[in-house]
């Protein structure tokens, strides 16, 4: 397996150093090709280095991670993993909707972070229990099925089950075992939820994020 080219974008130098140290202990799997501390330098570094994955802080000078996602051309093959300490639902959902393929909190352990980076680079989505909770909350609700003409606006029963298990703290392979499906199928479900989260125009979704800015 070739090494993963990773860029760290975070305005806290101490945190960048910490992540670098943790990731460098598995130098056969990841290589850190760039670091950036604000939106402008991040956009420049991504354009120059074309990393596989960008570890993107949600809050940063210059408009935050959202601004980086807006300014990086969508044709780029780079994927984004959002990372934050704030847990404000509005920001988390916002950055996922802007194109990040996953969200983890800053107290994630080294091995878990490594897994998450590889998963995102492979085109899959990374859902922490907290994000799964946000998603269930956002898609919960009383919309009658007849009222929904767009499938994007609701989760299938299976997707809901997967989200609930992730919210309960199950890893993907445990979810697979629990539901008697393959890990690949779990990944498909999660990616599909991510797509719905990004594309759904369901007005409850935005309102939900605005109403409950804080979790």
């Amino acid at each position: 397996m070739s090494t993963l080219r990773v860029a760290i974008v975070d305005d806290h130098a101490m945190f960048r150093t910490g992540v670098r140290t943790e990731l460098e202990s598995s130098a056969d799997r990841v290589e850190i090709v760039a670091e950036a501390e604000d939106v402008d330098s991040a956009v420049a570094a991504i354009a120059e280095q074309q990393p596989d994955v960008v570890l993107l802080d949600v809050h940063m000078p210059g408009g935050g991670g959202l601004e980086v996602l807006r300014r990086v051309p969508s044709s780029a093959k780079t994927t984004f993993l959002a990372l934050s300490v704030s847990d404000a639902a509005e920001d988390v959902i916002g950055i996922i909707r802007a194109g990040a393929r996953g969200y983890v909190t800053k107290n994630i352990s080294g091995p878990e972070l490594l897994d998450a980076l590889e998963r995102v680079a492979g085109g899959d989505a990374v859902f922490s229990p907290r994000l799964a909770g946000f998603v269930l909350d956002a898609f919960a609700g009383t919309i009658e099925i007849a009222q929904v003409d767009e499938d994007l606006d609701r989760l299938t029963e299976r997707e809901r089950e997967v989200m609930r298990l992730i919210a309960r703290g199950y890893a993907y392979k445990e979810v697979a075992k629990e539901l008697f499906i393959s890990i690949k199928t779990v990944e498909t479900h999660v990616s599909s939820v991510l797509r719905k989260l990004q594309l759904s125009s369901r007005h409850e979704l935005t309102r939900w994020a605005n109403d409950r800015r804080l979790i």
Binding site: D11, H59, P61, G63, G64, S86, E90, G94, R213
Partner: peptide, 18 residues
């Protein structure tokens, strides 16, 4: 009104305001 942390982040341009 928002919580102090989020408001401050917004003031300093660390997040995109609504």
């Amino acid at each position: 009104e928002s919580s102090p942390g989020l408001e401050s982040a917004e003031r300093r341009g660390l997040r995109s305001g609504s």
